[in-house]
Computed example of a mutant assay.
Amino acid sequence: MVAGPLLLASVTGNPILIAGGVFAQQLPWLLFSLLSGAFADRLDRRRLIVAANLGRAAALAVLTVAVGFGFASVVLIYLVLFVLGTGETLVDTAAGAMLPQLVAPEDLPRANARLSATFTVANQFAAKPLGAWLFGVAAAVPFGADALSFTISAALIFSLPSPGVSPAVSPAVSPAVSSAVPRRSLREDIAEGLRFLHGDRLLRTLAGAMGLGNIAFCAAFAVFVLYARHRLGVSDVGYGLLLTTFAIGGLIGAALASRVTSRFGAAAVLRAGLVVEVTTHVVLATTTRVWVAGAVLVLFGVQTVVWGVITSSLRQRLVPNRLLGRVGSVYALLETGGAAVGTLIGGLLAQAWGLTTPFWLAAAAMTAILAAAWHPIAEAGHRP
């Protein structure tokens, strides 16, 4: 996340080429999300994750050698980032589908919350300063370290028990993907997942709310750096600290997710989450005080993780094991596609009508989403 852009900046001064590195890693989500879901339902998920992580380790090893010997080019960096993104689509989809094979249904919220906390600590707090520090030691070091980390990750996943056979796990866990399922074309497999999602009103509503909500969020936050500088008046360091509020909220959300869901019920918490999103955009559109913005962003971070834990757990309980990869891949596609569309729209809106316009429109959009989703979300309190 940090060493990649730094490496590109050391190879080229073209801002378009540097920004293209981020796009190269995100593009596979738009191209392969649905395909990755189909493969996650066709293949042994554990072995798929191991193979994808070893592939990512190999790509990073090539880049490490290239950087170390001084022949890394923009094209090579793009290719490696594209491979990393492609592996990510496979690993994230298969991992989400594999969890119900390892964890009993009643423990899924706690497991998802712990995974969210791990992600927050590792990716939001540790990864960025560590990547920058390692790059300062030597440009090749962070990529070599990441190659090693993917290799260790593959070994850890390989050490897991075979799905559905661990005596330590409740017999209520989902069984492994059956090899007896007749094979069809990838198009038919993908279509089956889409039909299942479309036919379940609760899951369809949650997926639509997430996709449309991501458009609203990314439209508002596409120019957040300019908003922080010109409206809140913060320095570059202050901007960095402001971004950490999301991670702080995420950690709080991971700690509270299971408890608030047990206390108030999934439906009430999901509805409250949508209210928090509306409130966040309204507050950011109206305030000029950095502490107010920081406080509401902490609250938004809490909501994001709690919403994610609840929706992931519901999906893992309600979707048949043989369809988990495909249904999860649709969520991933909506999330990524919404982010891409929202980022583009937000920049255009801010340029045409000012920095607060995207926040006002995001608040209006989230209000409409809240109204449309209010009644379907009630099903979350009645489903297993």
Rank of each mutant, 00 (worst) to 15 (best):
V74G: 02
S33E: 07
Q303S: 12
A147N: 08
T151F: 09
A267M: 06
V290D: 14
Q124D: 12
A247F: 09
V91Y: 03
G37H: 12
S258M: 09
V292N: 14
L232V: 09
Y78E: 12
V62W: 12
A140G: 12
A350T: 02
A58D: 13
V169H: 11
V290I: 08
P163Q: 00
S312K: 04
G4K: 00
L324P: 08
F158Y: 09
A19H: 11
V22D: 05
V141N: 01
G21K: 03
R263L: 10
I248A: 15
F69Q: 14
V305Y: 01
P384E: 13
R259Y: 06
F71N: 15
R46G: 05
P129A: 09
P376H: 01
G136K: 12
F224H: 12
E106T: 09
G233L: 01
F119V: 04
A94Y: 01
A127F: 10
S73T: 14
V282F: 02
V65G: 13
E277F: 03
G238W: 01
T245W: 02
G144K: 02
T120M: 10
A222E: 05
P384Q: 11
V141A: 08
T343G: 15
T287K: 00
A72C: 10
M366H: 07
L323K: 01
A268T: 13
I16P: 05
L102R: 10
A285Q: 05
L8F: 07
P175H: 02
L314A: 01
L243C: 06
Q26A: 05
L314R: 00
V298Q: 02
L76T: 05
S312Q: 12
G240V: 00
V290Y: 07
G13Q: 11
A72Q: 02
A155S: 13
F143C: 10
W291T: 11
G347M: 06
T151D: 06
R259K: 08
H281Q: 14
A19Y: 09
L17N: 05
F158M: 15
V306S: 04
L348D: 11
N214T: 04
T93S: 08
L79Y: 08
A257P: 03
V296T: 09
A350F: 00
V296S: 06
R259M: 08
V91I: 08
E379K: 05
S179K: 14
V282Y: 01
A219L: 03
T356F: 03
L54I: 04
V67N: 05
L7C: 10
P15T: 11
A126R: 09
S174R: 11
A52G: 07
T367V: 06
L270H: 00
P28Q: 02
A254F: 04
A352T: 14
T93M: 02
A247K: 01
A24Y: 14
L115E: 11
G136E: 03
F300S: 14
A59I: 10
S258V: 13
P384T: 11
R204H: 13
M366Q: 11
V223I: 12
F359L: 13
L284Q: 04
G354I: 02
L102H: 15
T245L: 02
P28A: 00
D41P: 03
V327G: 04
A371L: 14
P5H: 07
T343D: 08
T118A: 13
V177C: 06
A9I: 07
A113K: 07
G131F: 00
L232W: 08
G199M: 07
